[in-house]
Design a protein around this nucleic acid. Structure first.
Lengths: 179, 179
DNA sequence: TCAAAATCGTTAGCTATGAAACGATATTAC
DNA sequence: GTAATATCGTTTCATAGCTAACGATTTTGA
């Protein structure tokens, strides 16, 4: 079963979050960017966010989702179906923000595992509803508490205030960028 | 050409970063987790991090990397080769933290685009070096400044101090989790 | 010295992912 | 009323990504 890894780092950083001399040199000389034109703080923020996000995904897939052979995306689709019971394919694509084609493929896989089933609308035959099965519910009831424990775990080195702080700042980034 | 999107959200949140009533109900009733046992702050941190990370990747792939048909991962491999000139396949896999098999496939694609070339070691024939071509260098010299502008852009709604703050907290998360 | 073990990169086989094309169905315009 | 248009989900074809198996080497150990 496939466990998606993909912790792709762009920069090579040392432990203190500093660019290596080789990186500075290349950027400086080849891209003709003087070092004082580089916003190292922005580089650092962006890189750290990305690294945490991928670490998070890896940890969850490895420690929780792999038990039922689910990828992060499969899990998030199953989560949506758990919450909303029955959702049109189109709506599901919007909720999870992946393409219709991907939804089509993933629900097909989930259907093979008998965690969801599909049924087309009797009035408008273009529409297909995807629903969670009882077995799918059981899986979510087992996995969700573990998933949540993982979330708590990951940020446990931050105090409650620090967590609030990070959340608020990130929410601002999300809002400003319309992510 | 494929542009990786994948903004997979697990939770459905409202604009203020609150779980929807339907989510609370399902988690409460089906997973038998009383709401006061849920760490909503942790959920919020983790979700916001993931959302920013994916927004970042999407924005870069859409606005910068697609010009040369590069995915995030291809770009990061090309970046490493730009910095280090010539790297063994094995080392490249460690640097970018993807599997050797993936490196093999991606460098094959990059080789088709004539941005890199491969050559095996004459002493130890098991080893293959991947190097950036002149054309690859040109692409990086064009793309890197745009990539960096994107990074600066994304966090521009945070002050310098707030950026430092986020970076430091995230670095703690990275360190504690060994991400 | 030479067989066993380790190392390295590629291939095979799977899921995931997107864009674009397609086929079926509904809606709109005239 | 029917032809053009729009909508929806699937299929097709490409890359990305993983694990596991493989083939070619090199190193090790007795």
């Amino acid at each position: 079963m496939k466990i998606h890894k993909e912790v792709v780092r762009v920069y090579s950083f040392n432990e203190d979050g500093e660019l290596l001399p080789e990186e500075k040199d290349t950027i400086n000389q080849l891209a003709k960017m003087p070092l004082d034109s580089l916003d190292l703080e922005a580089v650092s923020v962006v890189t750290n966010i990305y690294r945490v996000a991928q670490g998070l995904r890896n940890k969850m897939e490895r420690e929780v989702l792999s038990k039922h052979g689910l990828s992060w995306t499969s899990f998030s689709i199953l989560y949506d179906l758990w919450i909303w019971k029955s959702v049109e394919t189109k709506k599901l694509a919007e909720l999870t923000a992946v393409s219709k084609a991907t939804i089509s493929n993933i629900t097909k896989t989930l259907e093979k595992k008998e965690l969801v089933y599909r049924k087309s609308d009797s009035r408008d035959r273009r529409i297909t509803y995807v629903s969670i099965t009882d077995q799918g519910k059981l899986v979510m009831e087992e996995l969700y508490p573990q998933f949540h424990r993982g979330e708590v775990d990951i940020v446990s080195s931050l105090s409650e205030n620090e967590q609030k702080n990070v959340s608020e700042l990130l929410r601002r980034v999300i809002r400003e960028n319309q992510f």
